[in-house]
Design a protein around this nucleic acid. Sequence first.
DNA 1: TCTGAAATCAGAATGGT
DNA 2: ACCATTCTGATTTCAGA
Lengths: 151, 151
Amino acid sequence: MDEIDLKILKILQKNAKYSLEDLSAELKIPKSTVAYRIKRLEALNIIKGYYAQIDPTALNLDYIVISLVRARYGKNYHTELGSKLASLPGVWGVYFVLGDIDFIVVGRYRNREEFVENYLEKLMSMPEIERSSTQVVVKIIKESPNMIIWW
Amino acid sequence: MDEIDLKILKILQKNAKYSLEDLSAELKIPKSTVAYRIKRLEALNIIKGYYAQIDPTALNLDYIVISLVRARYGKNYHTELGSKLASLPGVWGVYFVLGDIDFIVVGRYRNREEFVENYLEKLMSMPEIERSSTQVVVKIIKESPNMIIWW
DNA sequence: TCTGAAATCAGAATGGT
DNA sequence: ACCATTCTGATTTCAGA
């Protein structure tokens, strides 16, 4: 991983359709070398894949929720609860944190009913949870999780 | 936006490199029609772009933080604070929520020093903040924000 | 709006340094 | 590990339905 690899990643994290030719011109190295580098980054699993970014609002996914969850104490309670939370439909993020709270959970739904049915009811029936508070997101000010390299 | 569009999106949200030919076979429509559909989804900004997904740990980004922020009351305090939080280096998510907390902020850093310098010090010098608590993520159990369509 | 065929172009493969 | 060339196949274009 050198400076050139980093430059490639910096460009591809923003635009996966950037062509080998343009990368070649940008980095001033032959395009076959660019191809070679990218293949290596893929093989090393540094590039984990390519995906289309879809506008959530276009699919009416504007019922975004974030929950702060505290687990009960007990052996395996944390790991078990973690995977149970992660498997809830609509949940895309589960973070295990230290402190007052144990888990932060993020999910996207199309409306209140869908949220209640797929998320809230299931959450409230989990015995491993000691306490949880769920917030509805009013506005997404920033959401660009694909921008890994910012420096 | 019909059933076919949704199927296309469902596939491309997972794999942007899925070829027109394979999509054509999968959906049982000619590949030129698939191309036509995709172009339309792009034009309508339903597909917002294509990205390479980069492994954060490969770049030593394992100092992940989530802050719960409460703003002071006052005109414009909330919108101003929102954009100030979003502009912090390393911050990729800022959510405005209702309730006890006003903002939930997510950031990625390579180490403690980088986090303190780029994030914590700047956060703590923001007068619009009444109170904030920052959690360090011990484990990312799930993080797949690109999976928009789950039903 | 959709489709088939042709043309174009980008990416994969090869082999040499 | 790097790079020039060749080759393959995916995408774009366009005319017609």
